[in-house]
């Protein structure tokens, strides 16, 4: 069957199924199981109301449990086992020690650390700059939407775009990559940018920074607008320079938002995979954890080490997870 037709049927079945489930489960609960009439009408209403939330939540809880919670446990399970013909064999931490002994893994960890420092930092800085600058001019919103645009472009699409920028042609012929065009214009030699260590990693980071700056700008821009005007006004009356107003009045007030932006981009960085796969596939020492993991799982079919690498990503994410849950709970009280 044509997949497009299949898709259409799925939409209809899926939506219809959802509506059908929610409506009929409600109907059955109210009409047959605990009908709000007869001698126990009051008690039945209470019971029905106690059950109803779980009818509403049911599909979501099942999907979340199956697609996100269970895999964490299962991946941990795979990471301490070895695949042998006929099943799994418990090997303890052997996969981990094997992985840590591998040069490519250490390279991936080091690169990831570098990514974790550079990308959130640079994106937040550029975003803050863009937010502050566009805040004061008449065509600011238009400028914002143009800087925001890369957000809609896939990591792979962005990789193609940036590969054109880094393109290199032999010396003496016209350069079609803008970076080499600039270099040769100043009299330099064209370079194969993506093969020069350690700068090639930064070339890849530029792609993600380009994408994430718009996100940082939008969020920080809204936070800047939310700053009480009196504080800025008072500082100006006291003779603060624009720099002082920005760094000593505005930035401290939006610090919580900066933290949120920083952590959100950190999460993106930890999972970055497409850019590295598309641009270098981890060659020339540009490997990162997520691509290393993909290599292990789907190219060498080494589930043990691949799952161990995934657990490392989970481990790096968990401080943010704990912090998010903590602040969400604090906020609800």
């Amino acid at each position: 069957m044509n997949p497009a037709v299949l898709g259409l049927i799925t939409i209809i079945l899926g939506v219809g199924g959802c509506i059908g489930y929610f409506w009929s489960s409600n109907f059955v609960l109210d009409r047959f199981i605990f009908p709000p009439r007869g001698p126990n009408a009051g008690r039945n209403i209470n019971r029905a109301n106690a059950i109803r939330p779980w009818l509403f939540l049911g599909p979501a809880v099942i999907a979340l449990g199956l697609y996100l919670a269970y895999p964490v446990v299962a991946t941990f399970w795979y990471s301490i086992h070895e695949r042998v013909p006929g099943g799994l064999e418990f090997v303890g931490l052997k996969n981990y020690s094997e992985m840590f002994a591998e040069a490519k893994f250490r390279e991936a960890i080091l690169n990831n650390m570098l990514w974790l420092i550079v990308v959130p930092g640079a994106s937040t800085a550029f975003g803050l700059l863009a937010a502050q600058l566009t805040d004061r001019i008449s065509w600011g919103n238009f400028a914002k939407s143009l800087i925001f645009m890369p957000m809609a472009i896939s990591f792979v699409g962005a990789s193609v775009i940036w590969k054109l920028i880094y393109d290199a042609r032999p010396e003496g012929t016209g350069q079609i990559g803008v970076l080499n065009a600039v270099v040769t214009w100043f009299g330099g030699e064209p370079q194969q940018w993506l093969t020069i260590q350690p700068w090639n990693s930064f070339m890849l980071m530029a792609v993600l920074i380009w994408i994430q700056t718009g996100f940082a700008m939008v969020i920080l821009g809204a936070a800047l607008r939310g700053i009480p005007e009196e504080t800025v006004e008072a500082a100006i009356l006291d003779g603060a320079s624009p720099w002082q107003v920005f760094f000593k009045i505005k930035v401290p007030q939006i610090m919580p938002t900066i933290v949120v932006v920083w952590t959100t981009i950190t999460l993106v960085v930890l999972k970055v995979f497409d850019i590295v796969l598309a641009m270098t596939n981890g060659q020339w020492e540009t490997q990162v954890l997520a691509n290393y993991m993909y290599d292990k799982l789907f190219r060498s079919f080494d589930w043990g080490v691949g799952s161990a690498a995934a657990m490392i990503i989970m481990l790096l994410v968990s401080p943010i997870l704990v912090w998010n849950v903590y602040s969400a709970r604090k906020e609800m009280r």
Partner: peptide
Amino acid sequence: MEFPGRALLIAAVVGLLVVPLQLALIP
């Protein structure tokens, strides 16, 4: 809706928000 365990579920949703989908592939 009021029901026991609501706060816990909300916290779980917030937590699952950041679980990397890389973990989910093989399982």
